[in-house]
Design a protein around this nucleic acid. Structure first.
Lengths: 194, 194
DNA sequence: TATCTTTTGATAGTAACTACCACTTTTTCC
DNA sequence: GGAAAAAGTGGTAGTTACTATCAAAAGATA
């Protein structure tokens, strides 16, 4: 890996880290891009070269691809939903204490700042498409298949429900999205009796 | 109703109408608030007094409350999902040709403009909460009940899937969100077999 | 008519984001 | 190793959504 690429990774990391720090300290809306750029020791121009919007500094989730890969590796006997649950469990258990803290903090930020929450939409749509593709490969169907799409939609919807549930609790430091997500998936897998 | 109130309704309507017209003609991002204000013959200050953001001129959906009310009136024998399907069918059949056109146009706008799509998130979250409340009343459970929330999440997720499916088709003038939604709900009601 | 309240428009400002250009740093090729 | 090409950086000058403030106009009330 050339020097140029290493430098890029470093600046990207620095910007994101300083952004998160400032958001936590002062709040999202109260932090300007100017401040972030200054703290990361780059110009505003550079900031916008690395992140198309201020939102993206928080919204980028490095865990997504890891989760998908783990999902693909789960044994074939499991139902698709059981495979999701196993994958999330595996990935989160691999996280170090510090990474776990950082991830929870990020999720808290996303949930608490209304501007960020609304920007989440596109992430959900993208996630749904990726999920549809992954499960299609798993059960040997077309990703464009109607049932596959509906299934992915339902799973993403359940994730949304878990998020908002966490949101409502979230006065204190709990905010256990993964746990709530797992419970919700279990319910969905059991047939959604009402 | 006093003159003051009538005037307010009129300005509100004028702003929204001119906004939609301009968005369709020139695109959402290409239309400035200044243009809308000018077309509606008000100042920018007044614009922002009526609509907190530019987005809100498109995002307000007058059909939501009507749908909920219809849902509550559906016969008790129907499963909750069957009740949703019956309600949407009823409400859309009540629309005049012109209203239907206008509603489709609005939905097309929301789907096509990325800025608007991301602003949809809060609408979905709100919709999910309202749906949870409605279905809780219907089956005699607590709206905070875990199963109820998961169910509402799944339904909203399925709606999301129907929307994106429509989005992908949507090169031509089709864009039949209600139809796709109905089909997706049918699948969900049959147990999401994969 | 006189006064009190609401609505309006004008002005000035902030902050996110874009376009452009000159300058420096890294890579590539001889 | 050095020159040319490519990529990355910072600065400046915009545009636009949105906020704050205030004086003038219009409507309600008596």
């Amino acid at each position: 890996m050339g020097l140029r690429e290493r430098k890029k990774l470093k600046t990207r990391g620095a910007i994101q880290q300083e952004a998160l720090r400032l958001f936590i300290e002062q709040g999202y809306a109260e932090t300007t891009v100017e401040q972030i750029a200054e703290a990361a020791e780059v110009s505003q121009s550079t900031f916008f070269r690395y992140f198309p919007t201020k939102e993206e500094t928080v919204l980028y989730d490095p865990l997504d691809p890891v989760l998908l890969e783990s999902f693909a590796r789960q044994p074939a006997e499991l139902t698709p939903i059981a495979a999701i649950r196993a994958a999330t469990k595996e990935v989160f258990s691999l996280l170090s204490e510090a990474e776990w803290e950082r991830e929870l903090e990020r999720q808290r930020l996303v949930i608490l700042a209304p501007e960020l929450r609304s920007a989440l939409f596109d992430k959900f749509v993208d996630g749904m498409a990726m999920l549809a593709e992954a499960v299609a490969a798993r059960v040997g169907r077309d990703p464009a298949d109607h049932d596959v799409k509906v299934w992915a939609g339902a799973v993403i919807g359940v994730l949304l429900a878990a998020m908002t549930e966490t949101m409502r609790e979230g006065k204190d430091g709990l905010s256990d999205i993964p746990g709530n997500f797992d419970a919700a998936l279990a319910t969905l897998d059991n047939g959604l009796a009402l």
